[in-house]
């Protein structure tokens, strides 16, 4: 079966074969492509980027991302979780806004430096 690796913008076109419990991958330019194909077939994972609300002047919202991947099926649960969060203070990028989401060990962190004034 054919698959497109989404790990990086190279978007390698992978050829994935399943034979007696083994998954064989070709067409990948790097090792990450093989890992991607295997998890995509067994337990697909995604990193998620979004935003959370703030009360800080000049920042109605601030951008955030997961610092690792979460199961694809949890994306909307994460978005609902983020909708509950409002930052009341200006924070540097990399600040954790939600820790260990759904027991995955993954945190949600800000990706914009709010220390810079925006008005």
């Amino acid at each position: 079966m054919e698959m497109v690796c989404i790990v990086c913008p190279n978007g390698c076109r992978l050829d994935v074969e399943r034979a007696d419990g083994q998954i064989k991958v070709s067409g990948n330019k790097c090792k990450r492509g093989e890992i991607f194909a295997v998890t995509e077939l067994t337990n697909p994972m995604r990193s998620v980027t979004s935003s959370v609300a703030t009360t800080v002047a000049g920042y109605p919202v601030v951008s955030v991302k997961t610092d690792g991947e979460i199961p694809k099926g949890k994306i909307f649960d994460l978005i609902n979780l983020l909708a509950q969060i409002t930052l009341t203070q200006s924070v540097p990028s990399g600040t954790v806004v939600a820790r260990d989401v759904f027991g995955t060990g993954v945190n949600v962190i800000t990706t914009t430096d709010m220390e810079v004034t925006n008005e």
Binding site: C8, S47, S93, T111
Partner: peptide, 13 residues
């Protein structure tokens, strides 16, 4: 690395 746009910009800023 796979950075978000603001993170990429911040490195240069």
């Amino acid at each position: 690395e796979k950075l978000s746009g603001p993170e990429y910009a911040e490195r240069f800023i």
